[in-house]
């Protein structure tokens, strides 16, 4: 469990993180989403005590990180970029970290195996690809078998296979009851990995929401209908809260009604329906809508657009 209360970080006159309050619960993967420069890394650095908050507090399992007596057993962190001396081998890097908390050598070899680096464990990190570096970072985070994981952009630099691997890993760690907090600037990635998403922009909290609720609740959800009596069905379904578009003579795209409602209405009026496909909005679309409509989040459209446009960067 990570609890942030009014967390604020100012560097000189610039505010990097402003009054963030959120909880990261155990048992699920929580995404931390925002464009580059939104304050994700700064927030994560404050969680593990590298940066001191200008105001507010953040605790892990009830205590500030620095007060834990064996922090590596409490929280595993993968911080932005590499946190590894490239002149050292992967195994020696982990051995040095393990030594601080008396973690046995056996465990070092175990995590190397787990992240798939056992074969290159003796090689210097200098020759590692970005993906291998990320895997070593994840190995460092898992070293103390912590019940809280804080991972900054863990999929960066991973190939599709690696991305799938980490997605599965994060979910299984969460399923074991651990707290998993993962940042990303990719909404699409978070939609697949996270159950809860905390979104920030320009250091402020924009949203803290359940991913599936947001998507199913979105008015952007469309039902695609194919019917020979398109005009008739269209008239039948028309009402104020419903919008209907048509891309071809026999096709309709209905927003504001469920596929059940459309199918039932068609049956009652004897209209044949050949295809009835609900299409869920993408997370991007859902969040755009959510944050635009919500006064509570204090959202401004430009901030969300920057989240969106950042989604395209790699």
């Amino acid at each position: 469990m990570i609890e942030a209360q009014g967390l604020t970080k100012r560097y000189g006159g610039k505010t990097a993180v402003s009054d963030l309050t959120f909880d990261v619960r155990p048992g699920i993967v929580t995404g931390f989403l925002g464009p580059n420069g939104a304050g994700k890394s700064t927030t994560m650095r404050m969680i593990v005590g590298l940066d001191t908050p200008s105001a507010g507090t953040v605790t892990v399992n009830g205590k500030p990180y620095a007060e834990h007596r064996a922090p590596l057993r409490e929280v595993g962190a993968l911080l932005e970029a590499r946190s590894i001396h490239t002149g050292r081998s992967a195994r020696n890097h982990l051995l040095a970290l393990a030594a601080t908390t008396g973690i046995p050598v056996r465990r070092v070899d175990e995590v190397l195996e787990l992240v798939g680096l056992a074969e290159v464990a003796g090689k210097r990190v200098r020759g590692f690809s970005l993906g291998m570096g990320q895997r070593l970072g994840i190995a460092s985070a898992l070293l103390g078998d912590p019940h809280t994981l804080v991972l900054d952009e863990p999929v960066n630099g991973l190939d599709p296979e690696g991305i799938l691997w980490i997605r599965t890993l994060l979910r299984s760690l969460a399923a074991e009851g651990r707290t998993v907090f993962v940042s990303s600037h990719l909404m699409s990635e978070m939609a697949l990995t996270a159950e809860q998403v905390i979104i920030i922009g320009k250091g402020r909290l924009l949203a803290d929401v359940d991913v599936s609720e947001v998507i199913t609740g979105s008015s952007r959800n469309v039902v695609k209908v194919r019917t020979p009596k398109a005009a008739e069905l269209r008239e039948l379904l028309a009402r104020p809260a419903v919008t209907i578009a048509s891309s071809a003579a026999d096709r309709l795209e209905v927003t504001g009604l469920s596929s059940d409602e459309i199918g039932t209405a068609a049956l009652e009026h004897g209209i044949p329906v050949f295809e009835l496909t609900p299409v869920l909005a993408s997370l991007e679309e859902a969040f755009m809508e959510l944050t635009r409509d919500s006064v509570e989040f204090g959202i401004t459209a430009p901030a969300m657009e920057s989240v969106e446009s950042a989604g395209g960067q790699r």
Partner: peptide, 28 residues
């Protein structure tokens, strides 16, 4: 927690362990 911890030993960060870690760093 609802999972068995891997065998990571026990104990906390101490000055002596930190010295051992720095020695590992130096010689490697």
């Amino acid at each position: 927690p609802a999972y068995t911890r891997a065998s990571t030993g026990s104990g906390e960060v101490t000055q002596w362990r930190t010295i051992r870690a720095e020695w590992v760093k130096f010689r490697t």
